[in-house]
């Protein structure tokens, strides 16, 4: 198990938002976390990343995974929208976590950055300014940065928010390749229940009801059935 949550209770300032969470993530899994009515996904993300301490229970990292080895694809912040930085600079900053006190990037770091830009198909954009890119291109940049930080687990926070259908499909394809071909564990927070049940191997459903299990169990059970129908029906 790379990640095990046991009786996890999460929240801010001792105020519990979700409790009794139990789930596990193994190497190579594709876990989708779907939430009902704003059940507290950002709190869950911060807890998994180790930015917030759990209120109760525990998150245990295992299978050679350390706390700092989760690559994170955040949602865009206000600051980043006006940030003067080239694509290369941002991707390279993904290597920063390993550097410790070492002030400068090594040749190997630069190579890693170049490889990940290549992988994400953004090598030609290396010298472009981040804020002038399209939404889909920006997500690729941040994904390349996350890959510089880790080759083990990616935690994606609504990676397709605000993208048009074509770019959304490309993004899901890219993530699927990383999961299937490179064997990177994917934990994805998503509003898009259709994509979740299409790509994921496991589902964690949080909200009024909590469910964790494989996708097939989810679709067969009451929690999943009701939710997929309600969401899918509403959209189609």
């Amino acid at each position: 198990m790379q990640l095990t949550a046991e009786n996890l209770a999460i929240g801010y300032d001792a105020r519990v938002i979700i409790k009794d969470l139990n789930f596990t993530v193994s190497a190579g899994d594709y876990l989708c976390i779907v939430e009902e009515n704003g059940a507290g996904k950002s709190t869950l993300i911060k807890t998994l990343l180790g930015l917030l301490p759990p209120i109760g229970g525990s998150v245990v990292y295992g299978d050679g995974l350390k706390k700092n080895e989760i690559g994170y694809l955040p949602q865009q912040t206000e600051v980043q929208k006006d940030f003067p930085a080239s694509v290369r600079e941002i991707v390279l900053s993904g290597c920063q976590g390993h550097k410790g006190l070492n002030p400068f990037y090594s040749k190997a770091d630069k190579q890693t950055a170049a490889q990940n830009m290549e992988k994400m198909g953004i090598s030609t954009l290396a010298r472009r300014c981040y804020r002038e890119l399209s939404g889909g291109q920006q997500q690729r940049v941040l994904l390349a940065r996350a890959l510089c930080a880790t080759q083990k687990v990616l935690l994606l926070d609504e990676p397709t928010a605000g993208l048009d259908p074509k770019v959304t499909a490309e993004m899901y394809g890219l993530i699927e390749t990383l999961n299937r071909t490179d064997g990177i564990t994917v934990i994805m927070i998503s509003h898009d229940i259709q994509a979740a049940v299409r790509y994921a191997t496991h589902i964690l459903h949080i909200g009024n009801q909590v469910f964790f299990g494989t996708k097939n169990d989810y679709l067969a059970g009451d929690v999943g059935k009701g939710f997929v129908l309600a969401e899918g029906g509403g959209r189609a």
Partner: peptide, 9 residues
């Protein structure tokens, strides 16, 4: 650029 990412990694 991204304090949360920096902390997390």
């Amino acid at each position: 650029f991204d304090e949360d990412f920096a902390k997390a990694t």
